[in-house]
């Protein structure tokens, strides 16, 4: 019964992508990668959304010069591939005397990109709030800032939640770009381990790690979308 079976396609597949000894050996480094990925992701989400919200609020004051700057900045960050910006900053800045760690570069760029998209989404929410809301609030004696913060924003936030969640998920997934500049996140750990082990199991572990982190988030985003659904006629 327990004679050695000749290798079948199935066992070759298992040996290539799910080899137990490799899993044992490299689990710690993948876990380390998960911690780094989660750290970058948390920092990017918090800073990016706050910065985006701030930009949108500033834009609401409609100071022409400031708004032109914001629009140009946001447009550029929306049009450029994040990997291009990361490489420009990572390889360019040290030569002009500014040395940022690879972790800092990844955090900075993803934060700016998320802020740009978040600003657009918040701004869309602010402009979608009917004019009557502004007028009613102002006529009760609220100031501009009070109206913006206590009347318009609470309504605007509601419709921004689904698109903002989806955009945030998409940009958080870009933490994988850190591997190109050597940030020791999941993908970086996985590719390093794969080349050491001569076996694709660590890559599979990395992919599984991303699934474990992001499938719940994606499902949550989908749920939010139906929960806050507002049908465009």
């Amino acid at each position: 019964m327990d004679q050695a079976l000749p290798p079948t396609r199935w066992t070759i597949f298992l040996d290539t992508f799910f080899k137990a000894s490799v899993i044992d050996q490299y689990l710690p480094s993948i876990l380390k990668g998960i911690v780094v990925t989660l750290e970058v992701a948390a920092l990017v989400v918090i800073c990016g959304i706050l910065l985006g919200l701030t930009l949108a609020l500033v834009r609401a004051y409609r100071i022409r010069a400031v708004n032109i700057l914001i629009v140009i900045l946001v447009d550029m960050l929306r049009a450029l591939p994040p990997l291009v910006i990361i490489l420009v900053v990572y390889f360019g800045l040290p030569n002009v005397g500014i040395a940022l760690s690879n972790f800092a570069v990844l955090w900075l760029i993803l934060t700016l990109v998320l802020a740009a998209f978040a600003e657009e989404i918040f701004w869309a929410g602010i402009t979608a709030t009917p004019k009557g809301q502004w007028e009613a609030a102002r006529s009760t004696g609220l100031g501009f800032t009070q109206t913006l913060l206590f009347v318009v924003m609470p309504q605007a936030l509601r419709i921004t939640i689904p698109p903002l969640t989806n955009r945030t998920i998409a940009i958080t997934k870009n933490t994988a770009l850190g591997t190109v500049i050597g940030v020791p996140e999941i993908l970086n750990q996985a590719t390093t381990a794969t080349s050491f082990a001569g076996n694709a199991t660590p890559l599979m572990m990395g992919a599984v790690a991303y699934m474990v982190i992001f499938i719940p988030v994606v499902t949550f985003g989908r749920w939010l979308e139906t929960r806050f659904a507002w049908r465009r006629a």
């Binding site: 597949f13 993908l187 992919a207 991303y210 992001f214």
Partner: peptide, 20 residues
């Protein structure tokens, strides 16, 4: 495929599949 970052997918296909 919405959960796995595209770069992870790409590297998996390009440097993982050759092992198989």
């Amino acid at each position: 495929f919405r959960a796995v970052p595209p770069l992870v997918l790409l590297i998996f296909i390009h440097s993982g599949l050759p092992f198989a």
